[in-house]
Design a protein around this nucleic acid. Structure first.
Lengths: 121, 121
DNA sequence: CAACTTAGTTTCATAAAGGAAACCAGTTTC
DNA sequence: GAAACTGGTTTCCTTTATGAAACTAAGTTG
């Protein structure tokens, strides 16, 4: 995983770095990863549940982020024929393949918290 | 990993979701994850190497992102006593614990590319 | 001394992200 | 019918993020 550079030439662009860029284009922003984490934890979720549950998100943002994730086939939107119409969102099979990313991000957050705690004492 | 909601109450806030939020605060932006990916691949890297190698980044951005990552103890900055001063950046031990995240992000980018490819034919 | 290198910083400007609040449409309950 | 609920959309506004280009500072080379 190491390749020292002594010249001033830029190293060739590794596929992994391109893949990182591609992924981050889809997941950038303050809310997308949180939304996906929610769907991984809770399965099918209604719009208002997310709006109330994801602290601080505004309806406009939630709506926009859900649309973008749907366009990228990360999640699916289903309108239910209930009394007041409800809409359910859930991860697609492809969306579920993000679980590795979400879990890694989540695990590191906990690692980082411990790191900060160790330091301050 | 599933907890259906039928009530209108928001589900309690899971630790994992907080951890996701914490992590994304540190890694948000267009460049940070790419920079960390670079340092994981190449070890010690000089400022100008990154500036030339990370496609599209401007000096101001690189400088700012490196400062933020240093403040969060993800990487370390070392001024080398060379002819024209050079500065080396490398991940700290703590920064290296991000490898799981970076690898997951990178791997998913490749998964996603395959998914798109399968669909279009 | 002029020109070039490294490693930035500063300035000026634009683009993208995010948010609060009001509004809309359909349905239901009081 | 008034009020409430679901799931949004629209408007207006503020904050961040990002960028290109010029500029600084110290040392090096021709």
């Amino acid at each position: 995983m190491n390749a020292k550079k002594t010249t001033q030439q830029a190293p060739e662009c590794k596929e992994q770095l391109i893949a990182i860029k591609d992924t981050m284009i889809l997941l950038s922003g303050k809310w997308k990863i949180q939304i996906i984490g929610w769907l991984l934890l809770y399965g099918k979720v209604r719009f208002m549940d997310m709006l109330r549950g994801i602290e601080g998100i505004a309806a406009k943002m939630l709506s926009k982020e859900l649309q973008e994730l749907e366009q990228n086939q990360i999640l699916a939107r289903t309108v239910m024929p209930t009394k007041p119409v409800t809409v359910e969102y859930e991860l697609t099979e492809h969306g579920k393949t993000l679980s590795g990313v979400i879990e890694a991000v989540s695990a590191w957050g906990i690692t980082h918290r411990k790191f900060l705690f160790k330091k301050e004492r």
